[in-house]
């Protein structure tokens, strides 16, 4: 399998054409709405919406570390998915040896998931289990 560079990238140039077309259309829509859109500046036009009351303070808040943890888990599990993809296309050729390796790999993954579960890392809000851990009754 030794494709020339041109043959290898042949399916990609329509992609470039399409990308340019989409960007041009989106740009045209923006320009059109800029030209047609009304402009009326009131005292409170550009104040962030807070259900009708005058806003207090900045929105650069500290937020729950849970979101960061979910992002970490995502990186871990999605990376694993990429490895499994490589095996999935060739599952039949890889045979039993490949299957056993994948079995071990996925078992480790499942073990990690259950560990996170037991740790309470997958709980949202203060469920009773975590609350008991943080503040023993």
């Amino acid at each position: 399998m030794c494709l020339s560079a041109a043959a290898q990238y042949a399916p990609l140039w329509p992609l470039a054409v399409y990308f340019v077309a989409v960007v041009i259309l989106v740009g045209a829509m923006l320009v059109l709405s800029h030209a047609l859109g009304e402009r009326r500046r009131g005292r409170l036009t550009s104040v962030p919406y807070e259900s009708g009351v005058v806003g207090t303070g900045s929105a650069r808040l500290h937020f729950d570390v849970k979101f960061y943890m979910v992002a970490m888990f995502f990186v871990i599990f999605d990376m694993e998915a990429v490895f499994v993809f490589a095996w999935a296309v060739s599952a039949r050729e890889a045979g039993w040896a490949g299957y056993i390796e994948m079995f071990i790999f996925i078992s480790i993954l499942l073990a990690a998931l259950f560990y996170l579960w037991r740790l309470g890392a997958l709980e949202w809000g203060t469920s009773m289990k975590i609350r008991r851990k943080i503040e023993p009754l």
């Binding site: 807070e50 806003g55 900045s58 929105a59 937020f63 979101f67 979910v70 992002a71 995502f74 999605d78």
Partner: peptide
Amino acid sequence: NSKYSLLGGLRSSAQMISYEVSMS
């Protein structure tokens, strides 16, 4: 820089990356 937007953005991204895994 609005509180609703910030919370909404965080929620959406956490939701979408979580389900991205099972979709893959």
